[in-house]
Write a protein that binds this DNA or RNA. Structure first.
Lengths: 208, 208
DNA sequence: GTCTATAGCCCGATAGAC
DNA sequence: GTCTATCGGGCTATAGAC
């Protein structure tokens, strides 16, 4: 017995399928991701996680060294996926590249809100060694968005008084979707992506 | 002995001075706000709070019913202050009103990052009754920003395909400052306010 | 109003049977 | 690989002296 509907499990199972095996380890990780996203890492007990995965508390330690190791796996794979969402966009035009990138990144933070919340809000619960690993991934994400802004300014497509500040703001806007998005709200993840792509282009527009 | 410099205490003491008395209660609350902002509510122990305030663990319960009550006081006063920052802005021109409002709200989330982090990221740790109180304050904050957008569109100053969505994005942008801002970074709270006011106006600009 | 001491509970992690 | 049982420790909150 679990506290999730079959649909939700199926969706998440799909998204973690290639990253985590065997099956029991993946079930445990998905249970942990939901618990961490719902209540936060420190408010979640290993008993919560085990109960959600339909196993005994001791089963956690068959596949993971510790509760923190479980957090690290979620955070690492989550960061890798969100980075891949960015780098998958390939478009020669800076405006189109920015629009597609922002749409995809904002959409990801809504669609995979559970993982995104753990990725964005539980960094401080990682061990120093594990934090260093995801910090490197975060640096790549920031650099990637800065580069798109820089390319657009050089190509004459964008105009801004502060390139890095605006790149930071665009990233920040997308990331914060994980905080406020609710699956039962009016806007779909795709709606949010479309709106945010427009807003990002306005933020970098040449005419104000 | 505390883990904060005198300057930091003086600043925060100033900001909580009229809201919380007596002195020991205020010291405890400031210690709790810093601990909650640094490590999160659930990772913070009453021993942490007491140690930061330079008192014994039992002293927490002289002025507060529970650890959660301490969180509620911080969250309630913090929400009230951030709402006041918004409503203090009075300007007849919609563009100027929006610019000043965003500058002040973004700046507040940087300048009072400690309180802001508790306000924005510990809602889920409040009891249902206490959560309802701050939820009402949050509704007022959202409504206030929506109203400025609506006024600007009616006056012909703003143009947007989605009024509520853009109002939400502007709020979200300001709130997320509490997540990424570091006092030792390059940008001052005032810099951030200035940049964000410009970005908000671009997001609502008539010419794209 | 503040302290020391501790009750009572729950946590993360492990031992050992199957 | 999964279970039941449990250890050792840290947690919130309270009792009672001063």
């Amino acid at each position: 017995m679990t506290s999730l509907g079959e649909g939700e499990y199926a969706l998440l199972d799909q998204s973690w399928h290639d990253a985590i095996t065997p099956d029991a380890a993946r079930r445990m990780l998905i249970a942990a991701a939901h618990a961490f996203a719902d209540k936060g890492y420190h408010a979640t007990t290993t008993r919560d996680i085990a109960a959600r995965a339909g196993m005994s508390p001791a089963a956690v330690y068959i596949h993971y060294r510790s509760k923190e190791d479980l957090l690290f796996q979620i955070s690492k794979v989550g960061h890798e996926r969100s980075l891949k969402v960015l780098t998958a966009v390939q478009d020669p035009d800076p405006r189109d590249r920015m629009a597609k990138t922002v749409a995809a990144f904002a959409r990801w933070h809504a669609e995979f809100r559970t993982t995104a919340r753990v990725v964005q809000y539980e960094l401080g619960s990682l061990s120093p060694e594990h934090h260093a690993v995801v910090a490197e991934l975060r640096r790549k994400i920031e650099t990637h968005v800065r580069q798109i802004v820089e390319d657009g300014v050089k190509a004459g497509s964008f105009e801004t008084p502060d390139q890095n500040g605006t790149a930071l703001a665009v990233l920040s806007l997308c990331i914060d979707v994980a905080r406020w998005y609710r699956p039962d709200g009016k806007r779909t993840p795709e709606d949010i992506g479309t709106l945010y792509a427009d807003l990002a282009l306005r933020m970098l527009s040449k005419s104000v």
